[in-house]
């Protein structure tokens, strides 16, 4: 299958019994599910005071593991976000950075995001917005975390119609709403599901905007390739979703 996975993680997550793998083990695990390459982000950046140490640990962990491409986390709600970004660009060939608005209280329509978007464009780096990490109904009782509202995401996307953005962790209807009519937007398939997920999705979203994602280790890795196993979409569309779309997005 040789998929290119837009969403995987390394590190520790306190709220569930998730597999904690070393980078080489993650690559092997993905390979066993037909995933040849993957973008990987550091879980330890989610609740850390600032993401720098987790990003640097990620760069160290994936060095020498060709299948894993590091995607650092940037927290634009902190005053040092420009340094965070520069630090990442100094350490590794970064093509994509990930922002977690609900976990980091980032105002998507605020000035820091506007500046981050334009800096990314100048530096040739793409931006991923992690809309949700887990189903918000299943968050720990001691925390209160909700994904950004669709209307807020739409306002953010419409403010930067030329900035390529990958939206990660959208539900099916959110993906349809946010991708339609916004060719600069890509959506990943991690949380998208319906009877024949792919055919249903492509009825609402242009195929070039959709990318494969397993969201390992949060979701069962086998579930992501399963969406392709008996789908009725064309082989060419399958190839685009599995590899081509993400590669084109990152290298454009």
């Amino acid at each position: 299958m040789n998929a290119f996975d837009a969403l995987t993680w390394l590190g520790h997550w306190p709220f569930a019994f998730l597999a904690e793998r070393r980078a080489a083990d993650l690559a092997r695990h993905l390979r066993a599910h037909g995933i040849a390459r993957a973008l990987v982000s550091p879980l330890d950046a989610v609740f850390a005071p600032e993401p720098g140490p987790a990003n640097r640990a990620l760069f160290r962990a994936v060095r020498g593991v060709a299948a894993l491409e590091p995607v650092p986390v940037i927290n634009p709600a902190l005053p040092d976000w420009r340094d965070q970004l520069q630090d990442c660009l100094d350490h590794a060939p970064v093509r994509l950075v990930r922002v977690l608005p609900s976990y980091h209280r980032v105002t998507l329509t605020g000035p820091a995001m506007a500046e981050l978007v334009s800096t990314c464009r100048q530096r040739g780096v793409k931006l991923a917005i992690q809309v949700r990490l887990i189903d918000e109904r299943h968050e720990h009782h001691a925390v209160s975390i909700r994904p950004p509202k669709v209307a807020v995401l739409a306002r953010f996307l419409d403010a930067f119609p030329n900035a390529p953005v990958l939206l990660s962790g959208l539900l099916r209807t959110e993906a349809a709403t946010l991708a339609a009519g916004r060719p600069h937007v890509r959506v990943d398939l991690a949380f998208v599901e319906w009877l024949d997920t792919l055919r249903t999705t492509l009825a609402a979203v242009p195929a070039r905007q959709v990318v494969f994602a397993s969201h390992t280790p949060f979701l069962e890795t086998a579930a992501a390739p399963a969406k392709f196993a008996r789908t009725r979409i064309t082989p060419a569309a399958q190839r685009a979703l599995l590899t081509g779309n993400l590669e084109r997005f990152l290298s454009a």
Binding site: E193, A226, K227
Partner: peptide, 14 residues
């Protein structure tokens, strides 16, 4: 149809 048969089965086989 809220979910995909293939995904639902993969929860077990995976």
């Amino acid at each position: 149809p809220i979910r995909d048969f293939a995904v639902a089965i993969a929860r077990i086989t995976g």
